[in-house]
Structures are given as structure tokens and as C-alpha cells.
Amino acid sequence: MQRNSEFTTYFNTWVATELGYQGAPLEPESPILEMGLLDSLQIMQLITALEEREGLSIPLEEVVEENFQTPAAVNAMVTRIKAQP
């Protein structure tokens, strides 16, 4: 599993460049949905970015809010999908 800190660094770069986020750096457990950082369309953007970066395809049943609550949750989802045969 990619370490949460590593993933969070990637995620911080992504939100800064793609969404123009300029607030305090996010932590693995930052509640990104609650903070209003990502709306539904931006979640879709993130999915596309993750699929390219990780070379995987995120199945539709994983496209649920719970998987996008925090950077750590996103990382856990990616790890879980990668582990599948």
C-alpha cells in the first residue's frame, strides 16, 4: 500500500494545480468533502487523474462518497482496487 503521507503529498499537488486550492496543506484525514473542496464533477476529475496515474480503472461501484471523504480513504480505495486480480 502506498503510504498515506506519500499519497497525501500527491493529492496536495493535485488540488493545488487542478483546483487552484491555496489553503493549509491537507492531512491524510482531512475531511475533503465536508470542507467543500471537491464537488461531484471534481470527484470525476480526480477519478480520471487517478486512473491515469495508477494505470487502473475504478469500477462504478467504488464511485461512492465514502471513498472520497479523506485523502486516506481515496488511497485505501486505490490500494484495494490494485490488489484485485
Binding site: 461531484s40 464533477l41 470527484i43 470525476m44 477519478i47 462504478l60 461501484e61 464511485v63 461512492v64 462518497e65
Partner: peptide, 11 residues
């Protein structure tokens, strides 16, 4: 699956 539905319908 509101988000997945959005993904299907929009993308």
C-alpha cells in the same frame, strides 16, 4: 449510486 450515475450520465 448518485455519483456513479452522474459519471454514467455525464461522462
Amino acid at each position: 449510486y448518485p455519483l456513479a450515475f452522474l459519471k454514467l450520465a455525464h461522462f
